[in-house]
Design a protein around this nucleic acid. Structure first.
Length: 473
DNA sequence: TGAAATGTTGGGGCG
DNA sequence: ACGCCCCAACATTTC
């Protein structure tokens, strides 16, 4: 029977799809190879650099993947170092004749893969990449002229037109035919942090999805915007490292919509719309790779940004003196996650109030967000800075106080992350400086002592921003 | 998936 | 009864 299979031993290189469920690299390998070897490449940096929330989540996902592989009679093999070296070394060591992995969308990654493919070809092994990150491939959603979309709304319309073409998820057999490798030091289990802890399994993501669709999706349209409320799916970290398949999420949402009351359907379609935003930014990244280097829109590439290191530090630590901004930035450091509404607010604040480059913010987010995603992160930051696709005819400048009053009316979110402000009444919590001295003393919250004075004056900075941007047009 | 400035309307107090 | 002013509430325009 093995005669039908094109390969004898396939390395399944797990990257960005840290799961066994609906993993095209894995199930195609099971179809095409007599044996598979599940393999992970760990960079030395990921072991020795500071353990951010992002790295913690990644480790947890890796342990969960290993556990799921063990349930299926195999285990995760590990190679340290740069994949450009480690993968060829693994191919040689395991005498594999193919490497299966999921495809990337960023230009630097695709170039690395192209070089690796050449090198492996020289060793007589194939590198085969499988689409996985998005539901609909970028070349399937083009306008009438055959060009990629630059504006979300028409993109979404075109996307939905082919919504039924999203592939159905594929489940895996109970057993994985794996090669028996003698050297146990090459297994993940040999690493000190690899013993399994609570909440590691990828089923966690499936459970999260089911709970969201059952309890929250119906109210998603409204509640997703209120950072003090658990109104979002919280699936983004799982989508980022691939502990859940995007197609699994999509079809579950579609099915939930079929059984839902008409009023609940709106919530689900808003949720799907957010998935399409993610899809939109993936195709932007693929078709316009320069966005990783510079502004999408040429006219904003010469904008002058501030290099004020103190301002950047205060922003990243959540010490700007604007409660909603500080709550959000502290949530990021504590949890490796930030509510979407809050992301927009802090991004507007960095770029429009501090005049610091969106690229600094992009980098900071990427380091700390457990859900860090090249495409969505870049798209979101360029959107906030006004340098990206979907150019709006006006300057989007968020007023941090108005946004806070509108989306965190009773101050729940601010109180959760900014203990200095916990005692303040809702009427003052978003602008503590509006209290007189007695009130500040009474609540143990003297501005400039217990809680920072606003780093900048929003109204002044707003006027300045409009000048700066206007000069670029 | 803005916010502020400016314009319009209508009710109430008041002479 | 009427005009006048003030101002909140809402709508429109502008950046």
């Amino acid at each position: 029977m093995s005669a039908h299979r094109p390969y004898r031993r396939i390395l399944v290189w797990f990257r960005r799809a840290l799961r066994v469920d609906d993993n095209p690299a894995l199930w195609n390998a099971l179809h095409d190879g007599d044996e598979v070897v599940p393999l992970l490449c760990l960079s030395n940096a990921s072991l020795y650099q500071k353990l951010t929330e992002r790295r913690k989540f990644l480790r947890s996902a890796i342990r969960g993947l290993d556990a799921d592989l063990r349930d299926r009679g195999t285990a995760l093999h590990v190679r340290m170092g740069n994949p450009a070296v480690a993968i060829p070394a693994a191919v040689a060591a395991y005498q594999a004749d193919a490497v299966y992995a999921v495809a990337l969308h960023d230009a630097p990654g695709m170039h690395r893969d192209a070089r690796l493919k050449q090198e492996l070809a020289g060793m007589g092994a194939a590198l085969i990449l499988w689409p996985d990150r998005v539901m609909r491939e970028a070349n399937q959603v083009l306008n009438a002229a055959g060009s990629p979309y630059k504006v979300f709304t028409p993109y979404k319309r075109a996307w939905l037109h082919g919504a039924d073409d999203v592939p159905r998820p594929v489940s895996l057999p109970r057993q994985i035919r794996s090669a028996a490798i003698a050297d146990g030091s090459q297994l993940l289990a040999a690493l000190s942090w690899a013993s399994r802890g609570p909440g590691d399994e990828a089923v966690g993501a499936q459970r999260l999805l089911r709970a969201f669709l059952k309890n929250s999706a119906a109210h998603y349209s409204v509640r997703r915007d209120i950072p003090g409320v658990e109104g979002t799916s919280r699936l983004s970290p799982h989508l980022s490292v691939g502990t859940i398949s995007i197609r699994r999420v999509y079809w579950a949402a579609r099915e939930a919509a079929e059984h839902a009351a008409p009023s609940a359907r709106e919530g689900i379609s808003t949720f799907i719309s957010e998935l399409i935003w993610r899809e939109f930014y993936y195709q932007v990244l693929l078709h316009f790779p320069h966005v990783l280097e510079t502004a999408f829109r040429e006219e904003f590439r010469k904008l002058r940004w501030s290099e004020n290191a103190r301002h950047f530090a205060q922003w990243s630590e959540g010490m700007t003196g604007y409660p909603i901004v500080d709550a959000a930035m502290r949530q990021l450091l504590q949890e490796g996650w930030m509510h979407n509404r809050a992301r927009m607010i802090v991004a507007s604040f960095l770029t429009k109030d501090l005049h610091i480059s969106w690229q600094r913010g992009e980098q900071h987010f990427f380091r700390h967000l457990a859900d860090a995603d090249l495409a969505s992160n870049n798209g979101g930051w360029q959107w906030a800075a006004g340098t990206g696709t979907d150019a709006s005819p006006w300057f989007r400048i968020f007023n941090p106080v108005l946004q806070a009053k509108k989306f965190d009316p009773d101050g729940t979110y601010v109180r959760r992350y900014v203990p200095e402000l916990r005692a303040l009444p809702a009427s003052h919590i978003h602008e503590p400086w509006s209290m007189n001295r007695q009130e500040q003393e009474a609540h143990r919250c003297v501005v400039g002592k217990h809680y920072p004075r606003p780093l900048v004056d929003h109204h002044e900075q707003r006027a300045k921003t409009m000048m700066i941007y206007k000069q670029s047009l």
